[in-house]
């Protein structure tokens, strides 16, 4: 379980003490249950990345705290894994080498981590591409590598920062569906950042709507659509349309 308690973050200008500083996050409170799929939705600059980086332990909070299974977060940990917006692959490593990265850092022996990595590459549909370099495959495939790398560490919480923001619309829908299928097979909690309303409804159990200046949570919207969502046309469901209207309203006002 993840708990964010009264979290605030301020960025000060490095070399200009006259500037007042920017309140990127103000008094964020959020609780996420085990195996829940939560989307953070909001306009650019509302602090989504900042929030997810603090949860990941990559950035310290200024006020408040983050608890994972009751333990305060102070640094990255093996219970959380991050999928990056720009994929975050190491360009000098092959696809397989990139998936292996996390396990290699952890000290898993070579043969074993190869086997695990192959398994996860198969899970994301990339078997046969082990020896390609990132620049030789499409953006959608690169992000699959990013996802396989994160999953290979079996995190309790998967943190995804606009993971499909840099791929084309068709690939994006395909990746959304595959993500849901993979998630359904595991017990992973997912925190998914997006600024697409449809994406947030399609994927999540709950949409957390954020506003900017200062970055704060405006509202939480429960998504009561049945799962699995990849069967039939969920987006044509009248409930989907109603949620879309509600959330759009919430983003505006």
């Amino acid at each position: 379980m993840l708990e964010v308690r009264h979290l605030s973050k301020v960025f000060f200008e490095q070399n200009d003490s006259r500037k007042p500083g920017l309140v990127a996050l103000y008094d964020i409170c959020l609780t996420v249950r085990k195996k829940e799929f939560v989307c953070l939705l909001g306009p650019s600059g509302c602090g989504k990345t900042t929030l997810i980086r603090i949860v990941a332990g990559l950035l310290p909070a200024d006020r408040g705290e983050v608890l994972v299974n009751g333990n305060p977060v102070t640094s990255p940990g093996r219970d959380r894994c991050m999928v990056f917006q720009q994929f975050g692959l190491l360009p000098w490593r092959t696809v397989l080498g990139n998936v292996e990265f996390g396990l290699e850092i952890e000290g898993v022996p070579r043969e074993e981590r190869r086997d695990i990595s192959r398994k996860y590459l198969e899970l994301v549909g990339l078997n046969g591409f082990e020896d390609y370099y990132p620049h030789q495959i499409s953006g959608g495939m690169q992000q699959r590598v990013g996802i396989a790398r994160a999953l290979s560490k079996k995190p309790d919480i998967l943190l995804m920062d606009e993971p499909f923001g840099a791929v084309d619309a068709q690939t994006r829908e395909q990746l959304q569906e595959e993500l849901l299928k993979i998630w359904a097979k595991t017990d992973t909690t997912v925190i998914f950042v997006t600024h697409s309303i449809d994406e947030s409804i399609y994927l999540s159990d709950r949409v957390v709507v954020m506003h900017s200046r200062p970055g704060r949570i405006k509202e939480e919207v429960l998504v009561d659509l049945p799962r699995p969502r990849w069967e039939g046309d969920v987006k044509a469901d009248p409930r989907f349309a109603r949620l879309r209207t509600d959330i759009r309203e919430s983003l505006r006002g």
Partner: peptide
């Protein structure tokens, strides 16, 4: 961001 990937993976 590359260094951050390293940090995120411990």
């Amino acid at each position: 961001s590359m260094v951050e990937v390293g940090r995120a993976y411990l």
